[in-house]
Structures are given as C-alpha cells and as structure tokens.
Simulated assay, not measured.
Amino acid sequence: MPTMTNVHSFVFPASAGPISIRTVEIDVAPWFVGQDVAYYLGLKFMQTREPTPAAFPPMKSVWSPGQT
C-alpha cells in the first residue's frame, strides 16, 4: 500500500501574484494535489453527475483469450 508523507508547497511566480500548489510524497515520488491544480486552472467540480451524451455508444463486453 502506498505511503503518503510530507506535504510541501511549490510557489510559482505569476503575473497575477504567486501561485502556491501543495505536493505530497507518495512512495518517495512527489505528486501535485489535484484540487490546487484545478483551482488555478479555473476548473470547477460539479456536485451532480451529468448523463452520458447520446453521441457516445454504450459499452459492450468483448471476449478475450484466457478469459473465463
């Protein structure tokens, strides 16, 4: 199981002011905190799930060798 340790902040200079994005170490590798990245990119999280557009066909099961 991955181990998460040490929360750090990277501060990036920007014309509108410094941007601080948190990172965490997971198994000795740095990972950005998705919520911080999404915020600075202007992405918004929706509380409700949108239905799949009709343009996308439904998924179908496909048999593959070795499958039981």
Rank of each mutant, 00 (worst) to 15 (best):
M1K: 08
M1G: 08
P2G: 03
P2A: 06
T3D: 08
M4E: 12
V7D: 05
H8A: 02
S9N: 07
F10G: 02
F10T: 11
F12E: 15
F12I: 14
F12L: 15
P13T: 08
P13G: 09
A14V: 02
S15G: 06
S15T: 12
S15E: 11
A16C: 08
A16Q: 11
A16S: 13
A16I: 10
A16P: 01
G17E: 04
P18W: 00
P18F: 02
P18D: 15
P18V: 07
I19F: 01
I19G: 02
S20I: 05
S20C: 05
S20T: 14
I21M: 12
I21H: 01
I21G: 03
R22V: 08
R22M: 03
V24R: 03
E25R: 00
I26F: 11
I26K: 11
I26W: 09
V28N: 13
P30V: 06
W31Y: 15
W31E: 13
F32R: 01
F32K: 02
V33Q: 02
G34K: 15
G34V: 15
Q35P: 00
Q35R: 14
Q35I: 14
D36R: 00
D36A: 07
A38H: 12
Y39T: 11
Y39Q: 10
L41S: 09
G42S: 14
L43S: 04
L43A: 15
K44V: 14
K44M: 10
F45E: 11
F45H: 08
M46F: 06
Q47Y: 01
Q47K: 05
E50P: 01
E50C: 01
E50N: 06
P51H: 10
P51I: 11
P51D: 10
T52F: 05
T52C: 06
T52V: 14
P53R: 10
A54C: 04
A54Q: 11
A55G: 02
P57C: 03
P57G: 02
P58R: 13
P58C: 09
P58Y: 11
M59E: 07
M59Y: 09
K60F: 13
K60H: 12
K60C: 08
K60W: 09
S61L: 14
S61W: 06
S61K: 10
V62D: 06
V62E: 11
W63T: 04
W63Y: 00
S64R: 03
P65S: 08
P65G: 07
Q67T: 07
Q67M: 15
T68P: 03
T68K: 06
